[in-house]
């Protein structure tokens, strides 16, 4: 179900922890599985649990807890807007509303062209520049409708590296 390379990476993560603590490697193992396959199907979660010798429910608990794990297919760009206290007070609802209108999708949905997925996530620890969102492995802060429009235009234009 997973490539040799991913299995090796999971085995490496597993080796960091004591014999009886395979649960500790679960976060990393799920991340590796998601990176390879794009999202975590039920069978994939069960498979990861099996590799680590854990009851499947423990992997499901973790996979459903963290918003970083995707349980459904996602688009090319995943817009993860923080909705926790600081961002909320600074207008994250307005940001989400703007994105939703611009892209024509609701939270948790993906655009028909498969380009964008919109998500609301818990605090990402960048409160001083709220409201903010994560895209790929990068943070975008002090968001405004204008900065978002510019960003989306760039992404639609095929740009990968946007600043």
């Amino acid at each position: 179900m997973l490539s040799e390379k991913s299995l090796k990476a999971i085995a490496f993560e597993r080796s960091k922890y004591p014999q009886e603590e395979s649960r500790s490697a679960l976060l990393a193992a799920l991340r590796i599985a998601q990176e390879e396959q794009g999202y975590l199907r039920d069978e994939l979660i069960e498979y990861v649990a099996e590799i680590l010798g854990l009851p499947a429910i423990q992997a499901f608990e973790v996979a459903t807890f963290y918003t970083m794990y995707d349980l459904k297919p996602v688009g090319r760009h995943k817009l993860c807007v923080c909705g926790s206290v600081s961002c909320f007070l600074n207008g994250s609802d307005r940001i989400i509303g703007h994105l939703s209108r611009t892209l024509g999708i609701g939270l948790g949905e993906t655009t028909a062209d498969g380009l964008f997925t919109l998500q609301e996530v818990e605090c990402l620890g960048a409160c001083k520049d709220a409201p903010m969102m994560q895209l790929g492995d990068r943070y975008y802060e002090n968001l405004t409708p204008e900065s978002l429009d510019a960003l989306i235009a760039q992404l639609r234009g095929g740009s990968e590296d946007v600043r």
Binding site: D42, F60, T64, F65
Partner: peptide, 15 residues
């Protein structure tokens, strides 16, 4: 187990 988080947390068997 308990799946989901915060307001979405639910006790169940997932599958």
């Amino acid at each position: 187990g308990a799946t989901g988080r915060g307001e979405h947390m639910a006790i169940g068997t997932y599958v």
